[in-house]
Computed example of a mutant assay.
Amino acid sequence: MSENAVRPAVRTVRGSAHLAVAGLGLAGAAWALRAVWHIRLAVAGEPASGLPDQGEGRHRPLTSLENSYHLVSTAGDLLTVVCAALFTGWLWRMRDNARALSGERPRYAGIWVYASWIVPIVNLWFPRGIVADIHHKSAPDQKLPIVVNVWWALWLVGMVSGVGLMYQDDTDQVIARAYQGVTGLLVADLAVVGAAVAAILMVRTLTAVQLVRIED
């Protein structure tokens, strides 16, 4: 059956909301820790032996600080993936409930709940649009909470700054950036941490709004 032919039943979202909040909290903490290591690298300064990636395929042995940053970065990446899975799980359930409550088809096809985060250009507005559509169908008489726009603005800053989920630099290149000018890295770190905090508030706010409709 096509997606539009099936109207899903309303399901509780408390559990998925709690998981999403936990995931966002862990991811935000991981990025805050990454910011601490960026500061530590900047304060330590570039070693006399030069950057880790010395060009032409040559890499020198990492210092203990650089090696620990690799561990922090890897842990942060893993927690971010876990967070993404938990957040999209909440988003999907909220979307199903919004459809059941309104009796209207979602504005965006189901594939975009996942693909909208990674498809270039589309990822600049589709994810926010999905959230806004969920809120509109859950509570058509209420304005979109301002926290949604705060979350999305901070997310975009973190993403386009070159250190968010879409960044292209490998870990050694990020280390080089910390040595050569840490300000841009810290701006991105703070934006991602801020986006995680705003997302927690958004999840709690939208979940509460939908629960009111479900429990009426």
Rank of each mutant, 00 (worst) to 15 (best):
L26R: 01
L26A: 07
L26N: 02
A27C: 13
G28H: 11
G28Q: 09
A30Y: 00
A30E: 03
W31D: 15
A32Y: 02
A32V: 03
A32H: 03
L33V: 08
A35E: 07
A35F: 03
V36N: 02
V36M: 02
V36A: 03
H38Q: 03
H38F: 08
I39T: 08
L41G: 03
L41F: 11
A42C: 05
G45S: 06
G45H: 07
P47S: 06
A48E: 10
L51Y: 04
D53I: 00
D53K: 00
G55Y: 05
E56V: 00
E56R: 00
E56I: 01
G57F: 07
G57H: 02
G57Y: 05
R58E: 15
H59F: 14
R60I: 13
P61D: 15
P61E: 15
P61A: 14
P61F: 11
L62I: 04
T63P: 08
S64F: 10
L65W: 06
L65F: 11
E66G: 02
E66L: 02
E66P: 03
N67E: 15
S68G: 05
Y69G: 02
Y69Q: 03
H70A: 15
L71M: 12
L71N: 07
V72W: 00
S73V: 04
T74D: 13
A75F: 00
G76M: 02
D77T: 07
L78R: 00
L78E: 10
L78S: 08
L79P: 10
T80P: 06
T80N: 14
C83F: 14
A84F: 02
A84H: 03
A84C: 04
A85D: 05
A85I: 08
L86N: 12
L86Y: 11
L86D: 13
F87A: 06
G89S: 06
G89C: 09
W90L: 13
W90I: 05
W92D: 11
R95Q: 10
R95P: 04
A98G: 12
S102C: 01
E104R: 00
R105Y: 07
R105Q: 15
R107I: 12
A109E: 13
A109Y: 01
A109P: 11
I111K: 14
I111C: 14
W112Y: 07
Y114S: 05
A115Q: 12
A115R: 13
A115N: 09
A115E: 02
S116P: 07
W117F: 12
I118G: 04
I121P: 08
V122L: 14
N123P: 04
N123L: 09
W125S: 11
W125G: 13
F126R: 02
F126G: 01
F126S: 01
P127W: 12
P127N: 05
R128I: 15
I130W: 06
V131Y: 04
I134V: 14
H135R: 02
H135T: 11
